[in-house]
Design a protein around this nucleic acid. Structure first.
Lengths: 220, 220
DNA sequence: ACCGTGGCTCAACACCCTGTCGACAAACTC
DNA sequence: GAGTTTGTCGACAGGGTGTTGAGCCACGGT
């Protein structure tokens, strides 16, 4: 019921007078431990005790900071998606400048952000199935990206650069879903996957083909 | 260590003289209970006890038939993928006849099969994250479909119906991944999803655009 | 008719993990 | 220096998993 219960809004430094309290430090330690352990083994194989010990505290104390193991992951996911959002920036507002380059930039930046936090991304995809909060956060984030894509596609159609076709929203959903799954498979390296260095170009090619119905969209 | 340990190979009636033993009956009852319960609540919320009780046996007895809860799901998944494979049949050998119709048939049949076993499909996608056997089975199945797609695309290119572009395998991976994720989102109805009645046509449109670089592929 | 074996069943147990409760200490406030 | 807030943990209760060991029943062999 104290600081920690700000849950996902953890990026905002809590209302203390800037002073790094012991609690802040511990909370960060738990998060860091979680991300470190996730690089070594799957989320399901990490117990709350592991997290607590890794942060130098006891299990009950863990609950002072987070309501559950899932809450830790939720916070981690929140940080990563914010980073991805920041990385994407306003690229989509400038698609008309140079469509191919801008779309590529968009895909590439998402790819880089998620690759850097592979472990978190992979864990979230798994937990999404069992945890409603993670599922909803992801849904919200995805919805945002879908809307951005949709808007950009609509703009390209309006200026005559892209032909009409599928409803922009459906296309946006299909493309973003594809990206999600293809990147996941590449990172997880389980099952059929596109080779890491090619993944951005493969995805880009599908985006361009479906949005413009040709490999090379007309420049501005 | 007896009959049940044939695990995924359960479709093959075990070597008894055709007689439906009590065991066969129980095994089927567990499977049926699992599919029924999965339609009501998520896999994680179903305990082995639920499965056992549903099949009219005790928990320890459950272990006589399956090694774990996951093993039940694995068997269920095996049945569904076999059904999907059968439904797909040889459509891809006849793509040249009428590309649009055949590709649509392919996507549509997968869609129908998985929609019919929504619950199993959804559960598997979730468990795939934590269970290596499910992950591997899915990987194998997907690899098979990717290869079929790849072969068909290559054939279309060879006969001049489809232009060159992305390596056929990468394209096949991207498209199948998209289908998987888009159908999942539609069935799960969580987060941005294509409306159920449109999903086949949306997917088809992306397939055709990327394979033929035009909405309407040339007929034979 | 008798025994043994293999298919089948379960009560009871050991274990692990989660989440909570209540007592307690250090620090900051007035 | 009394009181609140922050932070800490030992000990417990509860629920799920997987195992053990003993027992039942139907059958085929002798």
């Amino acid at each position: 019921m104290t600081t920690a219960r700000t849950a996902a809004g953890s990026a905002v430094p809590r209302g203390r007078r800037g002073a790094r309290s012991a609690g802040d430090h511990r909370e960060l330690a738990i998060l860091a431990t979680a991300e470190r352990l996730l690089e070594q083994r799957p989320f399901a194989d990490i117990s709350i005790d592991d997290l607590a010990r890794g942060a130098g505290i006891s299990r009950p104390t863990f609950y002072f900071y987070f309501a559950s193991k899932d809450a830790v992951l939720l916070t981690l996911l929140d940080r990563v998606t914010e980073e991805a959002d920041a990385a994407a920036g306003d690229v989509l507002d400038r698609v008309a400048e140079d469509p191919r380059a801008r779309w590529r930039e968009l895909i590439s930046r998402f790819h880089d952000t998620f690759r850097e936090h592979k472990a978190v991304a992979l864990a979230c995809a798994q937990v999404r199935g069992t945890n409603a909060e993670v599922r909803e956060l992801w849904a919200t984030v995805l919805e945002h990206w879908v809307r951005c894509t949709e808007t950009a596609v609509a703009a390209e159609r309006r200026r005559g650069a892209a032909p009409d076709g599928l409803p922009a929203r459906d296309l946006a959903i299909a493309l973003n879903s594809m990206n999600e799954r293809v990147m996941y498979a590449t990172f997880a390296a389980d099952g059929p996957a596109v080779a890491e260095p090619d993944v951005v170009d493969v995805l880009l090619d599908v985006w361009l083909s479906t949005i413009y119905r040709s490999t090379a969209p007309p420049p501005a």
